[in-house]
Design a binder for these strands. Structure first.
Length: 670
DNA sequence: ACGCGCCGAATTTTT
DNA sequence: TTCGGCGCGT
């Protein structure tokens, strides 16, 4: 299909700064990929001088694929399509010496940095999880605002802030000692370096002569600054975004960055993509009218040339179980009557806890479903263990990794022994592993403990040395895994055999990625172990296995997780004051972002949209009678069918339930 | 190794 | 209020 006039305009605007305001379903990924193709084939930009930046690996991967399809792989060689964090990492790796860092640094995820913060604030905070989270969040805010510890301290108003700034200083000091970076550092360090070092900045401006940024409304201050520094005076760039889909401000995203562009680049060309190719007219109308309740810097109104479609519906359950039952009865009915496959239905909710009741009902009715989100692969204990081994191999000063695995699997090294090692490390100004390997430890530990520690150090060192010879690295890792007896340990400590099997399977999955990345393939150079580990930390695996084969399953996810996706039939559940908008957002005057969240949900729907709610909802042990969400009243009532609010008799309710089940029986006989 | 008992969660989480 | 996870004790 041809690009529409606005899309063409967006693709062809190649001189100077361009902002593409891309409404939901307006084909923005297509515009970005076409634009990259246009830059390469028509404008003489070599691929290696173009960078496209996204927020997720998934988006980066999709974009890479689509550019490859459009142009053919040979034209895309050298093209940079990566996440902000991977781009930051690329710059840091090239500029390690400028940054006074050693190669083979570790990347800490949120859990790792929380563990470090816990250790650093031991006496003062005493492991208070609530406070630690707040501290971590605060440090993140400072980093995103590009404030270093002493600047944070200088700015601190309250005593609390001063204390937190002091912890921030300790944290950074320790991170440096461990040669470790957190995710925010991946943006902050390159930004500060580019800002202060003219030669480095020029080098990177030379490298990236054209920059494209996706989901621009989700950038934070340091990310925007990085963009500004990279594009320089030339300002040849395109950012694509939609202020109405900004739903991550609680994570530091600054949707104001869209408006700031106009201030910082007066020549900014603004192009709006308002034609929607996804949803029926009624759904778009509802979305437009809802979002008009928010203030806007840029006016935007989506339109569709598709049919007007069926009315939006609002249905009730007498409580949350009944709500779930009714949704399921509805799905079963439509599957049966209209032959709609399960996979065309999506259930969207505000909070993960809401999923449980729907899950239960789906299981009870044997309806296949897929829940996205939840505990991620990398949050699993066995994966964290293995990653800690990998990190320690690459970076012997990674004390967080050392502490995690020193006694895992159990090898008779208890907290006391670790304490002794810590003391020695402190005296010698070294990392824990080096201290553990020091002869001075002999006099401080019992013979057994000393021997255990020695054995562990030798294991790590031997393996690390073997890993230096690239071809041997993978087998060295497998040998290590064997030697420490991790599989046996899993079977000993898991609550069930099947749990152990699951965990061991996960370990093997990880090991497969590692060995694939070490080996490389037709499209990927073989990577060093250090690069492999870094990529894994950023969840940036090559050939990340295709999302487990998607059968015919009902889709369950949070509204946040649904951004960017589309479904023929959408149920937005729990449409109640207190849930959406969420109570704490109401309390903090953050209803506009909740409205955007509702907007995101509505614009996921292609053909039909159903809002559901419960008349009664149990919470904290008492029972609430929530009001319908204010957003329902903001929608065009002519397009909304409210179910009659008659109070059904028990008999009628039972009838509804039974007819649902009867339909199910029939469906299962198919 | 297993079981019991207590405590915490209850908003969203791209890296 | 309830459920699940974790930690400790036998």
């Amino acid at each position: 299909m041809l690009l529409n006039p606005r899309q063409q305009e967006a693709v062809r605007a190649i001189t100077g700064p361009v902002l593409v305001l891309a409404g939901a379903g307006s084909g923005k990924t297509r515009v970005i990929t076409e634009k990259i193709a246009h830059l390469i084939t028509r404008c003489g930009y070599p691929a290696k001088h173009i960078a496209a930046v996204t927020f997720t690996n998934k988006a980066a991967k999709e974009m890479k694929e689509r550019v490859g399809q459009t142009l053919g792989r040979e034209y895309t060689r050298g093209l940079t399509v990566s996440t902000f964090h991977t781009l930051g990492l690329t710059i840091i790796k090239k500029e390690v010496t400028q940054l006074n860092m050693k190669a083979g640094f570790s990347l800490f995820d949120d859990q790792d940095s929380l563990a470090l913060l816990n250790a650093l604030t031991e006496p003062e905070l005493d492991g208070d999880k609530e406070l630690l989270k707040r501290l971590q969040h605060k440090i993140g805010q400072w980093k995103n605002a590009m404030l270093l510890p002493d600047q944070a301290l200088a700015q601190a108003q309250t005593d609390d802030d001063k204390l937190f700034a002091e912890f921030y200083r300790r944290y950074q000091q320790n991170m440096r000692a461990c040669n470790a970076l957190d995710f925010d550092d991946l943006i902050l360090l390159p930004t500060l370096l580019l800002r202060t070092n003219d030669a480095v900045r020029q080098r990177w401006q030379q490298k990236f002569q054209y920059l494209l940024v996706d989901e621009y409304q989700d950038t934070n201050t340091s990310q925007y600054e990085l963009v500004r520094l990279l594009v320089g005076q030339q300002a040849n760039f395109t950012v694509v975004g939609d202020d109405d889909q900004s739903i991550y401000s609680w994570r530091g995203a600054q949707p104001q960055n869209l408006a700031l562009l106009q201030r910082d680049f007066p020549k900014l060309q603004v192009i709006k993509l308002e034609q929607n190719y996804r949803s029926h007219g009624r759904i778009l109308k509802a979305a437009n009218i809802l979002i008009e309740n928010n203030p806007h810097v840029f006016e935007k109104k989506l339109f569709s040339e598709m049919e007007y479609g069926v009315p939006l519906r609002v249905i009730y359950g007498r409580n949350e179980e009944h709500e779930a039952e009714r949704v399921i009865a509805e799905i079963v009915r439509r599957r049966f009557l209209e032959r709609t496959p399960y996979s065309q239905f999506a259930l969207l909710y505000r909070g993960n806890h809401q999923a449980r009741i729907f899950e239960k009902a789906l299981i009870a009715n044997r309806i296949p479903y897929r829940m996205t989100g939840g505990q991620s692969f990398f949050a699993r204990a066995e994966i964290k263990d293995m990653m800690a081994y990998l990190r320690l191999l690459v970076n012997p000063t990674d004390d967080t990794a050392f502490i995690r695995i020193i006694n895992c699997p159990k090898r008779g090294i208890g907290p006391n022994t670790v304490e002794r090692i810590g003391e020695l490390a402190h005296e010698l100004h070294t990392g824990l592993l080096e201290a553990a390997n020091h002869q001075a430890l002999k006099t401080r530990l019992g013979a057994r403990e000393f021997q255990s520690v020695q054995y562990f150090c030798q294991l790590i060192q031997r393996c690390a040395r073997r890993c230096d010879h690239q071809p041997e690295a993978a087998s060295a890792l497998f040998d290590l895994l064997k030697t420490i007896g991790y599989e046996e340990w899993l079977y000993e400590t898991s609550p069930s055999v099947s749990a152990a099997e699951m965990r061991w399977k996960n370990i093997n999955e990880l090991m497969r990625w590692v060995s694939d990345m070490l080996k490389g393939d037709a499209e990927h150079e073989p990577l060093s172990l250090a690069d492999t580990v870094a990529k894994l930390c950023l969840r940036d695996m090559m050939s990340r296995q295709e999302e487990a084969e998607q059968g015919d399953q009902v889709q369950l996810m949070t509204l946040h997780a649904s951004k960017g996706l589309e479904f023929p039939h959408v149920f937005m559940v729990g449409m109640e004051e207190g849930l959406l908008p969420h109570q704490s957002s109401i309390d903090e005057n953050m209803v506009e972002e909740e409205r955007r969240l509702a907007y995101v949900g509505i614009t996921r729907a292609q053909q039909s949209l159903t809002f559901t709610m419960a008349k009664e909802r149990r919470q904290y042990g008492d029972t609430l009678r929530p009001e319908p969400s204010r957003f329902l009243f903001e929608l065009p009532q002519d397009d909304l069918e409210w179910e009659e609010q008659t109070i059904a008799t028990e008999a009628q309710q039972e009838q509804t339930r039974l007819s649902g089940i009867a339909l199910l029986r029939k469906a299962m006989e198919d």
